[in-house]
Amino acid sequence: MSIESCPIVLTVNGETVIENVEPRTTLVDFLRDSLGLTGTRTGCEHGVCGTCTVRVDGTIVRGCLMLAVQCDGARVETIEGVSDTGEIADLQENFRLRNALQCGFCTPGILLTAQELLSRGGMPDREAIRLHLSGNYCRCTGYQAIIDAVETTARQRTGTNS
């Protein structure tokens, strides 16, 4: 029941944020409801679908399985942040050209997950891309276009010919 709030200080997309949150508030609810960062969304709310994926201290996490209070002192990045820095502009453009999204609801989580794989460098094969994205649910596309777009980005980044 209701519940004392805890102060937390963290950086979100490079900005310092000072907020009071209830201990039970999940990271995804905090981002959406307190900060208005609605690019991060809830899908299954129990860690299965990957829709709420964000980066905490450089590692992707499920925003529904992490509490906001656990992010005290952390560096959180969301789709809005990585879009503005241009870090994944090439990946986003390849998603657009390949129609690798339909309703777009899962897309932020998928982009951040794919970027984790791509940032390791090297040229992952399709099987590796599929495996890396195996925790991200997309109901619309059937996945093939997503795999294509990630593969194309990997090729471009590594200078690998098709």
């Binding site: 959406r32 960062l37 609605t38 690019g39 809005e80 879009s83 998603f95 999204l101 777009g104 982009l111």
Partner: peptide, 14 residues
């Protein structure tokens, strides 16, 4: 699509 790839869509849940 650019809007959706940047997480700047507008869904009812938002």
């Amino acid at each position: 699509l650019r809007r959706l790839t940047e997480g700047r869509g507008s869904y009812v849940s938002d």
